[in-house]
Design a protein around this nucleic acid. Structure first.
Length: 595
RNA sequence: GCCCCCAUCGUCUAGAGGCCUAGGACGUCGGGUUCUCAGCCCGAUAACAGGGGUUCGAAUCCCCUUGGGGGUACCA
């Protein structure tokens, strides 16, 4: 049996215990696949490696004897953003899976910029994307800013490579110059549609010789280059997540690979780059599955070994299975959970004086989360579980744990819809686990940008912020939530009151106010002014007056913070200190008297 | 239209023919705890798209239907 005959999954395992170690499907002839399987085995064992077929339900005896001398191919993956000016959350998921796969197998992850279509300002449009990846902790071994042995990593700078490929394709007859006008092809397409058959270009304006080309050109026609797609036979792809997929060649088009102006199109460029960059695994979104045949055709015509393909399901819209796009923001905002996350972000952005536009600031775009104060680890953890799972219970993964456990085998086939609520739940868990010191550092810039703390901060900021964050506990879900606690950072005479709370707890509650005035004098002498002493003092006061705690505590909270809801009352008093507490009670009482 | 992919609670998922009376998480709804809020604890709700096979036995394998998604560009 030869490898090219094998269309089954390839596996390898540790001979010692036959433990299943790693699996890869192979697309017919790719030696690269075998090498990659072996290299993956190398990462888990140092002994001899057997390669054989894996069958659902069991491992079959090895078909090849251990062959330790086979060259070990490096795992190299890539993510290819186009410079659009923002980093889409779905793109991050794809990049994450590429990154995890490379890291898991000790390979490289690279970034290549798909700017065949863009003209200017690529750098500016790229910056938010690179910043986003950096913020998320997804690092790249080769690509923009870091360079690498295969530079340049911008498609716009690689046209010479593409031209060489086009020339070779033309020379071998795998591609041809075509002089049809757009309308002429369009007419054929419509005719096919009318007759309910698959459109196949007639090649009526195909020029296979220079003389033919010259003749067309003399008519004033302009030539593009098309691939000469086979018209019969079937292409079989063994996709690492979808398994065996077959495409009849007859349904494929003679796609254009080079425009009349000499610029090349994505499919050509992508195939050439993947070869040049020695990409071993092409891991990308499902939208490219149907595009794979034309890419395979180009690669094979060029004599390139094929990479392994893995097509990931989409990240779908909240509550739907449609691919998520930032263009349909209006629609997503009708989803209550999505809107909630969006509105909270907007509120924080406004409080820190951030000018936002829906284009670049919304929950589909990564920058949103950074600005609002989410934790990168929470987002990564959430995204990891969108289409992948380890088992039926593990949910929290450190970076090391996700790298150690990730595998393409466990990627789901069905699209997963983006659930803002679940993301928030991860964020809460991570925020909660964050050490106080880091929380302080995370939150401080928000207070500064909102003008509540100067920059550089006064020296009592650290302790006060720590005290506030401790008292706040899990009320701070994202860093920007600290702005909900502004009452601890404003001057006593600048405190704002929630009118509804003021009405309910003070104006409409004269008996509470009377108690408040009385307790104020007690507060003036409590020593020390700390939580246990304050609590004891209040309990004593309540007992002496024969009242319930609730009769005074709410009034006191409104007087101190201006709000009806907040931290524990004794925490609040202790943080404010005696002086502020008394001043605020006096101010509230005065306000009451004034109205 | 044609081609390709997909299908388990509202959502993310576990599930490799008997461990399934289908498990976990998020959400939702009750109850408890606390000075409010947040949290926490306890409980409940809720799914194998439909129909045919194969098999002693099907969420799991096969076929059909339905539904969803993607492709069919001189976009990426």
């Amino acid at each position: 049996m030869t490898w090219s005959e094998s269309r089954c999954g390839l596996s390898c395992w540790r001979p010692a215990n036959s433990d299943f170690a790693s699996q890869a499907a192979t697309n017919g002839a790719t030696l690269c696949a075998i090498q990659s399987v072996i290299s993956r085995c190398r990462s888990v064992t140092s002994g001899p490696v057997s390669v054989g077929l894996r069958h659902r339900g069991g491992i079959w005896p090895p078909l090849l004897p251990p062959c330790p001398d086979l060259p070990v191919a490096m795992v190299r993956t890539r993510f290819a953003p186009s410079p659009t000016g923002y980093l889409h959350i779905g793109g991050v998921r794809t990049a994450l899976f590429n990154w995890l796969f490379a890291r898991k197998h000790g390979g490289q992850f690279l970034l290549r910029i798909d700017d065949t279509d863009q003209q200017r300002n690529v750098e500016a449009a790229l910056k938010p994307i690179l910043d986003g990846f950096r913020w998320l902790g997804i690092d790249w071994d080769e690509g923009p800013e870091v360079g690498g042995p295969h530079a340049p990593y911008y498609q716009s700078q690689r046209s010479a490579r593409y031209q060489t490929a086009v020339d070779r394709l033309l020379e071998s007859g795998a591609a041809y110059r075509d002089f049809a006008k757009t309308e002429e092809v369009q007419a054929e397409r419509e005719a096919a549609k009318k007759e309910e058959r698959t459109f196949v270009y007639s090649r009526r304006f195909m020029a296979e010789t220079d003389a033919q080309a010259a003749a067309f050109e003399s008519e004033g026609r302009q030539g593009v280059v098309r691939i000469k797609t086979p018209r019969d036979g079937t292409l079989v792809i063994d996709d690492l997540v979808r398994g065996r997929v077959e495409f009849p060649w007859a349904n494929e088009q003679d796609h254009v690979i080079q425009r009349a102006d000499g610029t090349c199109l994505y499919h050509l460029a992508s195939v050439v780059d993947d070869f040049d960059f020695q990409i071993s695994h092409v891991i990308r979104a499902e939208e490219h599955l149907s595009n794979t045949p034309r890419q395979v055709f180009i690669a094979q015509a060029l004599g390139y070994p094929l990479p392994q393909y893995a097509h990931l399901p989409y990240v779908a819209e909240p509550g739907s299975k449609t691919k998520m796009s930032k263009r349909k923001l209006d629609k997503y905002l009708k989803n209550v959970d999505f809107k909630k996350v969006n509105d909270q972000g907007l509120k924080i952005a406004q409080a820190i004086g951030l000018t936002t536009s829906a284009e670049t600031f919304n929950p589909v775009i990564v920058d949103f989360y950074e600005q609002v104060g989410y934790l990168p680890d929470a987002i990564i953890n959430y995204l990891l579980l969108l289409g992948w799972s380890l088992d039926d219970k593990t949910e929290i993964f450190s970076r090391d744990a996700m790298i150690a456990n990730f595998s393409l085998e466990r990627v789901n086939k069905a699209p997963a819809s983006f659930d803002p609520q679940k993301l928030v739940s991860f964020q809460e868990r991570y925020m909660n686990a964050l050490p106080l010191k880091q929380k302080v550092a995370l939150v401080l810039p928000y207070l500064q940008r909102a003008g509540l703390i100067s920059s550089p901060p006064p020296c009592d900021t650290g302790p006060r912020l720590s005290a506030v964050l401790t008292a706040a506990g899990d009320r701070i879900k994202v860093a920007g939530d600290i702005l909900e606690c502004r009452e601890f950072f404003v001057a006593d005479d600048a405190l704002e009151y929630d009118e509804a709370a003021f009405q309910k707890r003070l104006r409409d509650a004269p008996e509470s106010v009377a108690l408040l005035r009385k307790f104020r004098d007690r507060l003036a002498t409590v020593e020390p002014f700390d939580v246990p002493t304050l609590e004891a003092a209040l309990n004593e006061f309540v007992a002496a007056e024969g009242i319930k705690v609730a009769q005074i505590i709410h009034a006191l909270r409104v007087a101190l913070t201006g709000k009806g809801v907040g931290f524990g009352l004794f925490d609040t008093l202790a943080i404010l200190g005696r002086e502020s507490s008394l001043a605020r009670i006096d101010r509230a009482v005065a306000k009451l008297a004034a109205s």
